[in-house]
Design a protein around this nucleic acid. Structure first.
Lengths: 204, 204, 204, 204
DNA sequence: GATGAATGAGTGTTCATTCAT
DNA sequence: AATGAATGAACACTCATTCAT
């Protein structure tokens, strides 16, 4: 097969990544074999290896599709709402969860099932671990900032330490992914997001 | 008559499990090899295999040491405090976290680092997955029950759905384990537990 | 009527062989991949395969360019010099070396670097091995004949067995290729040929 | 199988190296597969890999058994003969050839068949190539020294350049290995060594 | 009871070759 | 005629497990 369009190339990459996501969701990064992925993608080894240098690159690409949405969340913390105020922490978390659900790659549950493997894998690579921590540190600082703003507006009890509170939305996001991994579509994400927001912002 | 006492047997099992925990925390269930464990335990393959049937049994045993504390938490939800009332959800979570920290096996951070691998592994074994879900369902029901009791006492906003709220303490526990895995001893568990309790019980 | 002239075809073949020589000299027959050759020749796989049936044919063609000069050496042994006598063995070897150096394909060092791979490969193909031996047997017989002629002329010690001596010029040729492979252009081929001739013909 | 004697371990290593030599002699370093070696040694992959880290280590070990004898040749050049004089170049070469033939590993022909692969492989590893050249440089210098001594004793024509002549014994050694590879036991090594010595030392 | 050498199925990856376009 | 994406058999190597000693 000669000269092929960019679209064809992109479609192949998606086909492979999509197969990899299903395999990794089912069996984890180590449990899933390249053979599994070839079979799931209905492609030969050589074909897959011409699009990705190896399993590690596949893992990195899948990782990005799963946690990449966090990089797009900055606006949620910096840009005011139409009515001119910053979001309350719970509002921001709700929108962050919506961002996760809106990712156009596999299903929310499939991506969630890969999440624990991703956390587990980060431990083994110091550079990746440092990057993950940096990303979460930033997220926590953003939530803490929103908490302080809410306290200034009198919407949040002053007795709460905003820095410690900054860890809670992250926990709720991670906790959601774990429950999503365990329960799949049985988990009502709308109800989950609502309860999380209510808890963070108080009974508005 | 064999020379080995029950104590000797128990000590050997602990020696092996302790080595396995360190290996699994460092490299995950798949990344850690049996050879790693033999070396870490300073025991021969045959010795280890005479105490555990194989890697799977080792994984199962380690899993139990990590999440087993949840089985001991029933009293937190059923037995009233000295002053005669049931705990508020945040109080129960605080004590649950204390229970996790009190487990006498490895360090809290080591066990937390194994946790994501444990979640990941459960996906592959339907029976294990069902058991994990049953355990969490029970925990959620218990927290929901505490939430309803708190609402009856007027301590919790009636606008909050107690069933959905039941998922939040679980998320906070899981979220704590993930942050503990990522940050290790840098994470202030006291502050974490306090913030979680404040959020759940309101600014008491 | 196809557009391609014979000249075009020949040019393409030379282009491919030239690329193959560089690759084989650098990495050996097995170490060099067809991809390497495609890249070095700046040609597509299909293009190369339309000129050569496969890697084996390429190897055979390269082999011929390297040892083919021996086939052209017959005249050195049969045809008398202008002054009417046959060459002495050392003179013949000198001219044989000159013949090798005059081959218009790659550099002398590049061809020498392929030589050991060529010897190694011959072991695996009985037919090729037999042909190589036949060729060397003939060469040896020719040198033995020259030695006998020199002995008759009183130029070579009668104590030397001309048959065994026939192997020496061959060894000096092969030995030169190996030193050329190891030392490249640092090897002074003129000095090498002179020393070899002096040794064979005596201090004329 | 528990605790095993040093002899057992040594025997296993020899068993593996011996199998590797036969495979490499037949198919070359790249052409021979590890599977071939497992089969030839009648051992499992794991068994072989517990004695050698990988194919490269096996290649290095085999290389040493083949060219290692050169390292033991120093005495031939430095230590005088019983009659109190240094060897003539041809005498030294004869003894060097004897040293090669006396190596107790495989047969002389098997080792010779690996030799071209060894030369070919050295090209790809600059460090190995440098070491090979250094070793040959030393050998050449030693032969040149013997030639100068022979000239001083009036045994060698003063018209010959001792430095250039130093390359000839090396070529005769390498050339012998190549003819041994091609002809196997059909090559009369005694006659070969004798002819080489006569050529170098003159008709003594 | 304990040892550790040995097993062998299975892993990630490469690469000579093909053939639809 | 020329392309280059795709194939798939084969490769070097790993590791959970066994069992003769």
């Amino acid at each position: 097969m000669p000269k092929v369009t960019q679209e064809h190339t992109d479609a192949r990459r998606r086909q492979i990544l999509s197969a990899a996501l299903r395999c990794f969701a089912r069996d984890g990064f180590h449990g899933a074999t390249m053979q599994d992925i070839f079979r799931e993608a209905d492609l030969s080894p050589g074909a897959v290896y011409s699009y990705f240098k190896g399993k590690d690159e596949l893992i990195a690409a899948i990782t990005l599709t799963i946690v990449g949405f966090i990089a797009e969340s900055a606006a949620l913390f910096d840009e005011p709402l139409p009515e001119g105020r910053l979001r309350r922490p719970g509002e921001a978390l709700s929108e962050l969860i919506a961002l996760y659900r809106a990712v156009e790659f596999g299903t929310a549950a499939e991506r969630a099932r890969v999440f624990p493997h991703l956390i587990g894998e980060q431990q083994r690579n110091p550079a990746v671990l440092a990057a993950a921590r940096a990303s979460l540190d930033e997220l926590r600082a953003s939530f803490a900032q929103l908490a302080r703003a809410a306290q200034e507006r009198g919407e949040l009890d002053l007795a709460i330490d905003p820095e410690a509170l900054g860890r809670m939305p992250i926990a709720m996001l991670h906790g959601m992914l774990i429950q999503l991994a365990l329960y799949g579509d049985e988990l009502d994400l709308d109800a989950y997001a609502r309860a999380a927001a209510q808890l963070l912002d108080g009974p508005a």
